[in-house]
Amino acid sequence: MRTAVPPQDPSAALSTGAVARRLGVSPTTVRSWERRYAIGPAHREDGRHRRWTPQDIARLELMCRLTAQGVPPAEAARTARAGAPGRPVRTAPAADPPAAPPPRTLLPAPGGGPGGVLPLGTVRPECRGLSRAAVRLDAPAVADRLEAALAEHGLVTAWEEVMAPALHAVGRKWATAGERYVEVEHLLSWHISGALHRIRPRPAPPRTPPVLLACLPGEQHTLPIEALTAALGERGVPTRMFGAAVPAEALHDAVRRTGPRAVVLWAQSRTTADRALARSVAGIEWGLRGARTHSALLLAGPGWDAGPAVPHAGRLLGLRSALELIAPPVPPPGGSAATGPGPGAYGF
C-alpha cells in the first residue's frame, strides 16, 4: 500500500525570481533550464506561478555546481534529477523556509579541482552573485546583477564594492590559470562597460571646459576611466573620453583642440606609464595668443606607483576620491564646501 505524500507547505516554496537571486543566475536561465531539461518544480497547481520547494532548489543548486565545473547542461540536469552519485539531494523540512546559502569566499569556476576557484575574499553578496554569473557565462544574469547593483547602491559603491572586486578576482585567476578564464574576463568587462555607458550624464552649464580622459599608448585597460567618465557625467561635468591606447600625437592634438580643465591619463602597468609623455602633456598651452593657459594633469592607475613623480601632476587614488578632487559637491546655500586635500593628494 502506497503512503500518501503530505503536501508541501506553501511558505517553504520560493518564486522563480527568488530562486534566481539565490543561485546568482537570471530568471530567464532558470525558466530555460526548466523548459529544456525538465528540472522545474516537481509540483505546480494549475493557474499558479511556479513555486520551488527546498528539494527543487537543491536540484538546481547541484546543476549550478556541475555547470560551473564545465559539465554540459543536459548531463548536469540528468545528474541533478537523480542526485549526485553516492550523495542524496539535500532536502530541507517542508515546514521551514529554505535557509540562505552561507557566504563563500571561493567561487567555483570552470574546470573544477583545487585550482578552479575565484578568490573573492570578503565581499558584498552582490559581488558573489555577479561573479557566479560571469563564471557560468550567464550574460542575462550578469546584466541583471549590474543593473540591480547600480540601482540599489549608486555608481561609486557599485564600482568599488561589486564590479571592481569581481574584475580583480577574474584577473588574478587569469594570470595564474593561463587562457582558461579569458572568456569570463571578456564577458564581464563587456557587460560592465555597457552598464557604465548606459548611465545618462546630467546636462552641464554652457561653455564649461571638459575633462579629457585617455589611456597612454599601448594601454588597453579602460574600465576604470570609463567608470570615472560616467561618474563625472552624473555630476554634470562634461567629459571627452578617448579610450584605449591613444597615440602621443593624437593626445597632444586632443588637448589643444578641446582646451580641457583637466587631463586624466590612465596607466595600468609600469611599461605604459610614459613619464616623458605625461610631462609633455602637462606643458601644452592652448587658447588665444596672450591669454594662453594649460590643463591640470592627473595621473591614474597603478602603473604610476613606481618611479619618479611627474612635476605639476596630481594623482588619483580611487573613484570616490577622484570625484572629490575633480568635481567636489556643491556647497549648500549659505554654506561653504569642506576643505579637502589639494592636487597631488590622491592616486587612482
Rank of each mutant, 00 (worst) to 15 (best):
A134Y: 01
V162I: 14
L223Q: 12
R200P: 03
A133Q: 07
A164F: 13
A169Q: 08
A177Y: 07
P125L: 04
A141I: 00
P209A: 13
Q220A: 07
A134R: 05
E147V: 10
V142Y: 06
V170G: 02
E226G: 02
E226T: 00
S193G: 15
R132E: 11
V184L: 14
P165M: 10
C127G: 05
S193A: 15
R124C: 00
E219W: 04
L130E: 10
A175D: 11
R198A: 15
K173I: 06
I225W: 05
L137R: 14
D138G: 07
E161K: 00
A175T: 14
E126L: 01
A149W: 06
L212M: 11
L188D: 01
G178P: 09
E183H: 02
M163P: 02
H168C: 13
R180E: 15
V184A: 07
V211K: 03
D144T: 01
L212H: 07
H186F: 03
G233I: 12
L187A: 12
P209R: 13
H191V: 00
R172L: 15
L216S: 11
L130V: 06
L188K: 03
A134I: 05
E161N: 10
E161S: 05
R124E: 08
P210L: 08
R202S: 13
T122K: 05
E160C: 03
I199S: 06
S189D: 10
L130D: 13
A141T: 02
V135I: 01
S131F: 06
V142F: 05
R180M: 11
A164N: 14
V135E: 04
V162L: 09
A151I: 10
R145S: 12
T157S: 14
P224A: 06
V135P: 00
R128S: 12
L216V: 12
L232K: 01
L228M: 11
G218L: 05
L228C: 12
R132F: 02
L213F: 06
A139M: 02
L130N: 01
D144V: 00
L188W: 03
L216C: 09
H168I: 13
A158K: 04
L137T: 04
G171K: 09
L232H: 00
P206Y: 10
L216R: 04
A195W: 10
H153P: 00
Q220N: 03
L137W: 06
P125S: 02
E183F: 00
V123W: 09
A227W: 12
V123S: 07
V211S: 03
A141G: 14
R132C: 01
I225S: 03
R172Y: 12
V182N: 08
L146S: 09
R202E: 11
E161D: 14
A204H: 11
R124K: 02
V135R: 04
L146N: 08
A139T: 09
L150P: 08
R128E: 15
G121H: 08
E219S: 11
R207Q: 07
G154T: 09
A151W: 05
L146E: 10
R145Y: 14
R198Q: 15
T229G: 06
R180A: 14
G178S: 09
T157E: 15
A133I: 04
I199K: 03
E219P: 10
A204D: 13
A148Q: 11
A204V: 13
V182I: 14
V135N: 00
A139I: 01
L150H: 11
A151S: 14
A141C: 02
L232T: 10
G178R: 07
A149G: 03
L188T: 05
A231S: 13
Q220W: 08
A175W: 02
R200Q: 15
V156A: 10
